[in-house]
């Protein structure tokens, strides 16, 4: 680790590595192994080092949620204690991700504020296009997830003679609300 690097330095040149999500968490052999092997020692420690100091906040959050799901799935009689601990860790990790995102967005906005003249004009004009692109991407992602969730629900409920229509039809709006929430956080920070 570079001991001369300040937290500020880390945030000036962020290269966020988005974690690759497993196609099917339930079928992921690694997760299955965690479920089978779970003993409550290392997986449920709240020490960040054991979660992985090299992980990005998003990766750490992913690990924490995987551990939490594994703890719930565990057949150990003490599953509840482990589930409560892992839930707490997952919540903490999520908060770290939210703070990290707000911090990165704040720094990005400050960098944009330093643009002048033609640069600033380009930035402002193209932001409109960028927002449009992002909205399209966000819609696509939300719709894909909605479809998957609906597929899962149909599968789960199929034997019950019940039809749930688009339970997450608000997916796109939810996405926008989350973005709005982030934006508000950013404004509050500044």
């Amino acid at each position: 680790m570079n001991t001369h690097q300040t937290p500020e330095d880390k945030n000036i040149n962020p290269e966020p590595r988005a974690p690759k999500l497993p196609e099917s968490l339930a079928m992921d052999p690694k997760i299955q192994t965690e479920r089978d092997d779970i003993k409550g020692q290392v997986l449920y420690s709240s020490k960040p080092e054991e979660i992985g100091t090299e992980q990005t906040p998003a990766e750490a959050y992913k690990t924490a949620t995987n551990n939490h799901l594994a703890a719930i799935a565990n057949k150990d009689p003490n599953w509840i204690q482990k589930a409560l601990i892992t839930r707490k860790i997952a919540n903490e990790r999520e908060q770290i991700v939210i703070d990290d995102l707000a911090n990165r967005q704040g720094k990005q906005n400050r960098r944009a504020d330093l643009l002048t003249g033609k640069q600033q004009e380009d930035w402002l004009r193209l932001q409109v296009d960028l927002e449009s692109d992002k909205a399209i991407l966000a819609n696509k992602k939300a719709n894909t997830r909605s479809a998957k969730l609906n597929g899962t629900l149909r599968k789960i409920f199929s034997g019950l003679g019940t039809v749930i229509i688009s339970p997450i039809a608000g997916g796109v709006n939810a996405w926008q609300n989350i973005r709005e929430e982030r934006k508000n956080r950013h404004h509050n920070l500044n």
Binding site: A18, L25, A58, K141
Partner: peptide
Amino acid sequence: YRMRRDFIEAEYETIKA
């Protein structure tokens, strides 16, 4: 949970872009 993580992942992608 996976949906939530997707939202977070997309936020990072947006910032990077």
